[in-house]
Simulated assay, not measured.
Amino acid sequence: MPKLTDKTLGEAALNPDGKTYHGPTAVRWMMEALTGKPFSAAEADKLIAEAQERAKAKRNMA
């Protein structure tokens, strides 16, 4: 099974429009690059949601 990191980050996460990137795929690529283990789309979505909640809480504290 090919690994996501067999491609560059740009190749793996580029959207069909050729101009923008798919954030969750970029997260999956980075996690795989850092850990050497595959990272599922569901795990990426969860990680992003948690980060958004932390950022929202931080903004509301200010």
Results as ranks from 00 to 15, higher is better:
Leu9Glu: 10
Gly23Gln: 11
Asp17Leu: 06
Lys37Met: 14
Ala51Leu: 04
His22Tyr: 10
Met1Pro: 06
Pro16Met: 05
Lys7Cys: 10
Met30Val: 14
Trp29Leu: 02
Lys3Ala: 04
Met30Leu: 15
Gly18Ala: 07
His22Glu: 07
Met30Gln: 15
Ala41Cys: 11
Ala13Ser: 07
Lys3Pro: 02
Met31Val: 14
Glu32Gln: 07
Thr5Ala: 07
Ala51Gln: 14
Gln52His: 13
Ala44Val: 01
Glu32Cys: 06
Tyr21Met: 11
Ala57Met: 13
Ala44Lys: 04
Gly10Lys: 14
Pro38Gly: 02
Met31Arg: 14
Pro38Val: 00
Ala51Asn: 09
Thr5Asp: 01
Asp17Ala: 05
Ala33Ser: 15
Leu34Glu: 09
Glu43Thr: 00
Thr25Pro: 00
Ala55Thr: 10
Pro16Ile: 08
Arg54Leu: 09
Ala49His: 10
Ala26Ile: 03
Asn60Lys: 13
Ala44Ser: 14
Thr25Gln: 08
Tyr21Lys: 08
Leu4Thr: 12
Glu32Asp: 06
Leu9Gln: 04
Gln52Met: 13
Arg59Gly: 01
Leu14Pro: 04
Thr20Gln: 02
Ile48Asn: 01
Arg28Trp: 03
Asn60Tyr: 11
Asp6Val: 02
Glu53Ala: 09
Lys19Glu: 09
Leu47Arg: 09
Gly10His: 14
Leu14Asn: 00
Ala12Lys: 00
Gln52Ile: 05
Lys58Asp: 05
Lys3Asn: 15
Ala12Arg: 00
Pro2Ile: 09
Pro24Phe: 14
Ala12Thr: 09
Ala55Asn: 06
Glu32Ala: 12
Met61Trp: 12
Lys46Met: 08
